[in-house]
Design a protein around this nucleic acid. Sequence first.
DNA 1: TTTAGCACTCTAACCCTTTGACTGCTAACA
DNA 2: TGTTAGCAGTCAAAGGGTTAGAGTGCTAAA
Lengths: 356, 356
Amino acid sequence: MLKELSERKKRILHALVDLYISTGLPVSSADIQSKYLPEVSSATIRAELSALEALGYIEQPHTSAGRVPLKDAYKFYVDSIDGSNASNMLTDQETAFIRDNFFGRLGQIEDLSKEAAKIISDVTNYTSFVVDQSQGENVVIDEIKLIPLKRGKAVVLIVTDKGMIADKAIDVKEDVKSEYIDAAGRLLNKVFAGKTIEDIKHFDVSEIDAEIKGFKDIFDEVLGILRMYISEHSSDNVFVEGALKMLDYPEYQNIDDAKQFLSVISDKDAVSEIILDDDNSIEFTVRIGKEDSGVDKCAIITAAYKVGDEVQGKAGVIGPERMDYKKVISVLDYVKKMFSSVLGRDKLPDPFDDEE
Amino acid sequence: MLKELSERKKRILHALVDLYISTGLPVSSADIQSKYLPEVSSATIRAELSALEALGYIEQPHTSAGRVPLKDAYKFYVDSIDGSNASNMLTDQETAFIRDNFFGRLGQIEDLSKEAAKIISDVTNYTSFVVDQSQGENVVIDEIKLIPLKRGKAVVLIVTDKGMIADKAIDVKEDVKSEYIDAAGRLLNKVFAGKTIEDIKHFDVSEIDAEIKGFKDIFDEVLGILRMYISEHSSDNVFVEGALKMLDYPEYQNIDDAKQFLSVISDKDAVSEIILDDDNSIEFTVRIGKEDSGVDKCAIITAAYKVGDEVQGKAGVIGPERMDYKKVISVLDYVKKMFSSVLGRDKLPDPFDDEE
DNA sequence: TTTAGCACTCTAACCCTTTGACTGCTAACA
DNA sequence: TGTTAGCAGTCAAAGGGTTAGAGTGCTAAA
């Protein structure tokens, strides 16, 4: 199906997508001729367009209209940029903006993900998302801290190799001694430290039943917190920004489409399903017009960010099919580097101060 | 301005608002006559409508159209229900739904607020909000805990009389001794314990400059966390549900209005500003067509929920002016009771089990 | 193979007319 | 004096016809 096109056909197809991306209007042979191929006549281009239409790359909304790209045309277009030097599409201001915002935020992976989503949306003007997968099932519990407060409360801190995953206040009996809490803490560490989330899932309480007798209440609370984390965490690590920006594009001037889009995008489970269902090993994914997801008429560009060889999460953009792919890919590429840099303390191309 | 209307004018005005609420279309004299006042002719009603128009209650979109209610008409309409027995508007299913959902959730005030917002939106089919004010500026800091972790990190816990307000990981130098952390903790408590959030706002660092010398880094981090809390917390306790439901109403079929509405409603600061700027002492507020807030064309109904005499927060609905006021007021009234009941452990009209 | 020229097609915009839903007014009536 | 029936007047919305113009496909010549 993807038969090799002649060089001129390629140029024409590329020009057509380019024009359509910037205007959103059907592209005529004259447009292409005047702005991209002045050396041939519009009649020639018309003939080529006819051929491209027969090949299924483009179509006419009606007989006397220009051509509009179809999925294959976008795919062709995306392929033609992916290989090239994407990141120099960004202006110096833009890279500076991204970098400054990225390093302005220290700290938690959550803040970082959220910030990244905001940055991507700000720079591209499309809806963006970040799914953080770093806190997955192979997070190892380093330590559990039990800190007694006043009034019969205590705080449980669960510290992992990737940071903190939970901090909840629980009730303990008002009159409990601090030695008791300490003992409970030691027991909890004995039981949980070194285990992964995956381990906890299949955890069998009866095995250690005898030991925990005296600390049943506290033990159950902690187990409850861990279980909660396992069941709820999947939606906690999805960050969507700029959902309303989609309404600026003519594709979404129809209120029903807009509503459909917004309701999908504000459902974090749905978002994470859409994002995560493609192959983890591919660094860039571009999907155009995904019908079954509830966000048809959309293109989704995803980049996996890694530390070393391990995928830590995905960041991406969701926008109209007619999207500024070059820019989006450039931005995602740069953000990807930022992520690797911050998370893995790699060297960055630009000099900056960040001590470990 | 609120001159007393004749009984017939009242009936006609009430009928007109009723009809307009259910259809959303301008109401003609014949509509009112056939469905509400068959004993007089449409001509008579026309004469009355003319009078009501002169009084500023209603208007015609254009000469040959029916009448549409203006703000005063809605106010009149709302007044006419507020006094009556509002809560029997709800079906048994509805009260059961509210009650079950309310008590199904135990626990944190945040979960409760969020759940309440969801319930209100589900039952009324409008956008709802809950603002929790129980964690205001007179929260007293009980204690600050500094807990050292591995790898040069430490956790700061700020405990208040109302619960925990912050728990952030901070960096400390890798080689710092635990005595140092303890000392820093003692200093922090000396400085902050017993103070309110309000106090912190006007806190003058220079006063205690000498003492904190050795702990400057940690001290600054904690102060940063507190400042962050002060500046950001106002948006943490605003819960909005069902924002997209507004798009179902014909008033918001225009994409620009919809966008305007959504952008206001998804900005929590803006929401809390809109909600909180009216008098705290009034238990029910109905505002119709608030121009300056960015959500004109909307009516906002707010109920303050209390424990004892103290306002704990506000819950409400934001919807088209043409809103089912009776139902909304009934729902809010019932939710109000639920809140008082759960938070204050009052007695409820219905029997249910809730042990202290 | 490319090009210029031309006839053809189809949408979008515009204007004009018609329709029908209301009202306001008036004259008659209780 | 208040109410009503009847009727003329008004206006928005819908329908229909025309025009303008943007673009194409085709053809014949270069």
